[in-house]
């Protein structure tokens, strides 16, 4: 039965309601690209999401459509998901600054006491 719809576009498409569907194959929707955008010049690029695409050029077309619909973008990058190297969250302890590395922190350099003591010795 051909669908007679309230939507003239659907009626025109002459859709057979009973037709059997052949399920999509595994790579029908391609692989994914990670998308980075820059909101304005001078700012860092940041990750905004993914698109599915067969190549970088089309990934760029889809990324523009998906992630810059409302302005707020001056530059886009796309990179194949499988080309990104990542750390695992369960290894997050590698980022913890250990107390042994206080020599790298500004607040571990305190000179005012020493200056004060020096001045007092000079006056005495």
């Amino acid at each position: 039965m051909i669908i007679q719809s309230l939507d003239p576009r659907v009626t025109r498409a002459r859709i057979d309601q009973e037709k059997e569907f052949q399920p999509l194959d595994q790579l029908d929707q391609f692989e994914t690209y990670e998308v980075f955008h820059q909101k304005k010049r001078g700012q860092q690029h940041s990750h905004v999401g993914i698109v599915h695409a067969p190549n970088a050029e089309l990934a760029m077309v889809f990324a523009k459509e998906q992630y810059s619909r409302r302005g707020q973008c001056v530059n886009l990058w796309v990179v194949r998901t499988r080309d990104v190297f990542i750390t695992e969250y369960e290894d997050a302890d590698i980022f913890e600054t250990t107390p042994a590395k206080l020599h790298r922190e500004a607040e571990s350099y305190k000179v005012m006491d020493r200056i004060q003591a020096y001045k007092e010795r000079q006056e005495a």
């Binding site: 790579l27 692989e31 993914i50 067969p54 998901t81």
Partner: peptide, 8 residues
């Protein structure tokens, strides 16, 4: 083409 799960 090789699919991997998207990152985020």
């Amino acid at each position: 083409v090789e699919y991997v799960t998207p990152l985020a």
